[in-house]
Amino acid sequence: MSSLVFKRVYVWELAVRFFHWITVGSMIVLIITGFIIADPPALNMHVEASNAYLFGYIRVIHFTAAYLVMAVALFRLYWAFAGNQFAHWSYFIPYSKKAIKNILHVIKSDILLLKDRNENLEDVSIGHNRLAAFSYFIMGLLFIFQAMTGLALLSQTSGWWFPKMFAWIVPLMGGEIHVRYWHHFLTWIFMTFIVIHVYLVLYHDYVEARGEVSSMISGFKFVRAERIKKDKETQKD
């Protein structure tokens, strides 16, 4: 049995990895503090109110993490124009025939786990597969909605013009109680995304063994040597 030859390809630039892990950290903090805010546990009973500011701190942490994730999201938006082909905005929207073809392949091969008879080497994505990329685009839209509802909830008590820009969302959605509801509900969608995303990363690493997990740390993925142009083959891997 012949062994396959793989080459290292630099897929995730430092900016992308930086964005990814800051987002991971912020989301974990936001989810935990968010659920505490929604239904505070009885942690702090029997102290004097004047000696404690626990809930205030939890809210401050939630708001700080929210601003942090918004800042890196903005940075990622910039990188969608400045970054490499795998970070480019056009990679995330499946408007081309090629992208649709890849999505169909991924659904067949990786979601339904069927054998794709017309399988070729091109189908194995180097960066994101196009279905995953599209799911990140959808998550990006949901993130914008989550950020806007959060800022709308903050607008009334904030002294800053930025959250105040989103005050119009409150009457549009029928009052703060509804804004709060959707902000809370979307948290579950984000958690669902995390479960699916982490599972599929593990799945790809398990089945393809191309360094899917470590790629978001090192930036490198392993790609079949046949995918690299011949004249480049002399380069060091």
Partner: peptide
Amino acid sequence: RPYFDAGLF
């Protein structure tokens, strides 16, 4: 409100 900020519910 001070009880809210202190986390006393």
